[in-house]
Nucleic acid binder design. Sequence first.
DNA 1: CTATAGGGTTCGGTTTCCGAACGTAGCCTC
DNA 2: GAGGCTACGTTCGGAAACCGAACCCTATAG
Lengths: 134, 134
Amino acid sequence: MLARMRAAELADERCSIARPASLLGDRWTLVILRQCFNGVKRFEDFQSTLGISRSLLSERLGRLVDAGVLRREPYKDAVRTRDRYRLTEMGLDLYPVLMALREWGDRYMAEDGPPIEIRHRGCGGEPSLELRCS
Amino acid sequence: MLARMRAAELADERCSIARPASLLGDRWTLVILRQCFNGVKRFEDFQSTLGISRSLLSERLGRLVDAGVLRREPYKDAVRTRDRYRLTEMGLDLYPVLMALREWGDRYMAEDGPPIEIRHRGCGGEPSLELRCS
DNA sequence: CTATAGGGTTCGGTTTCCGAACGTAGCCTC
DNA sequence: GAGGCTACGTTCGGAAACCGAACCCTATAG
């Protein structure tokens, strides 16, 4: 695993934004996670859909596994045993972060309209985030 | 302004996560924005509280201004005219993203407890994000 | 007219990122 | 049982981003 000195310094800050930022704060990690929520699991599929270099993808996936966001596990294909990466509970709990980002992106960076629509399976409503008090 | 080829490619993707990620997805931008929400406005204060290099801070602030997230404006000190950076409405709307990140950070990356508590001014409750259907 | 402070820009060296090429472990096919 | 194919990486040299330190410019204060 490559050292990331500056990121490590960020991670040491006693701040609940700086620490996630040191893990998620790069150009690829967020879109890798988006693909995870889209159901992508295999190395080749991340690579071909994202266009990320193989070496960097390998490093990023490893970092997410080390952090506990993804779990790497072998599974049986129709044909053979493969590896796949799946979101852990910790990873699934990043959903609000991705949703918040998507809402903001839809509002401010989608001059040609939202690229996809998301529907709550079951009720058919559009989910949205709300800030509420306990 | 330095070119960022890969980021530009990401920005071209028709995806409401990739596009915000191309702007926010680096180690510094998220903590810069955190400081904005904390009330930091002046170049020197960002620099001294974050420890970011001046050149990079300059480039990041400029990028956020170009994107419309921050506004740069002169204002009158007690003593003289200075510049300051303030969140635009577009920037303020990033609050849910930061909150989502903070909630996740508090849950999974704060083994020594949440560093700060946030209270809703007025009601005194703890705000939290909820995913709701329309 | 010198000193100080804010807000940068420039510079050279170091770290990270990149695509392309290579490695390897299973399985399939002949 | 040799050769191929596929999935999943690792290695490598060059390009880009990042870094601290030093410098620059404009204002006010003394």
